[in-house]
């Protein structure tokens, strides 16, 4: 079993639903985006267009972050995903320098000190989130391991209204994701680095 994600950029409307679903499910702090959508406007009026690129941890098979981690806090789990063990993370941020995808964020302070409503006292939600996001460790997309191990799909996949995201088993050649990767000629981000991501994109230029 090797979990993978296919993102069809041609279908993405840039609504940011995945970003919000991720934040709601994982309770990440203000300014932390395990799932993000990079948007960019190109050209000059009237020849303009908007480019969308959903990004996040690429859960690489040859992950530079796992290599760089001095304590083994960043590791591969049974599904082939890259996870961070907060107990082992000493917060050196080697992995952040190593990751080509800018997928990792560091908990610079507590979510209680930085509530979601800036300038307001922390809400009960902020306080509940603080326990899940200890200060001084590096974190990133877990591919919603709590959901997938319960037989569900990650929050971003569940939410996407354009059905631009397909989650599944890369080891199974008959799975929807494997077929679509083949049929739609999906590619990975920055393949030249040889990181072998398990996130595939359709419609990249």
């Amino acid at each position: 079993m090797k979990q993978g994600l296919l993102i069809n950029v041609e279908k993405c409307v840039g609504c940011g639903g995945c970003v919000m679903a991720c934040k709601r499910h994982n309770g990440t702090g203000r300014g932390v985006y395990w799932c993000n959508v990079i948007t960019k406007e190109e050209g000059t009026y009237p020849n303009v267009r908007k480019v969308m690129l959903p990004v996040g941890c690429q859960h690489c098979e040859n992950a530079p972050c796992v290599r760089a981690c001095p304590t083994g806090a960043s590791h591969y789990d049974e599904e082939g995903n890259v996870q961070v063990d907060f107990d082992k993370c000493i917060g050196c941020r080697m992995c952040m320098g190593a990751c080509p995808y800018h997928a990792r964020s560091f908990n610079w302070g507590s979510t209680v000190d930085n509530p979601h409503y800036e300038g307001q006292p922390p809400t009960a939600y902020d306080e509940a989130c603080a326990e899940r996001h200890p200060v001084g460790v590096v974190e990133k997309c877990t591919r919603c391991v709590d959901l997938t191990r319960a037989g569900k799909v990650p929050a971003c996949v569940q939410t996407c209204p354009a059905e631009a995201r397909v989650f599944g088993d890369l080891d199974d050649p008959d799975s929807e994701i494997s077929r679509k990767i083949n049929d739609l000629h999906a590619k990975c981000l920055m393949e030249e680095y040889g990181t072998k991501p398990s996130v595939y994109y359709v419609g990249l230029e």
Binding site: C69, P70, K88, C89, I90, G91, C92, M94, G136, V137
Partner: peptide, 20 residues
């Protein structure tokens, strides 16, 4: 370091692939 109190982790579970 973000986790100064966990610095002993360098000794208990070293990853010798890491330049650090």
């Amino acid at each position: 370091l973000g986790g100064f109190t966990k610095v002993w982790r360098l000794l208990s579970g070293p990853n010798f692939e890491s330049p650090l």
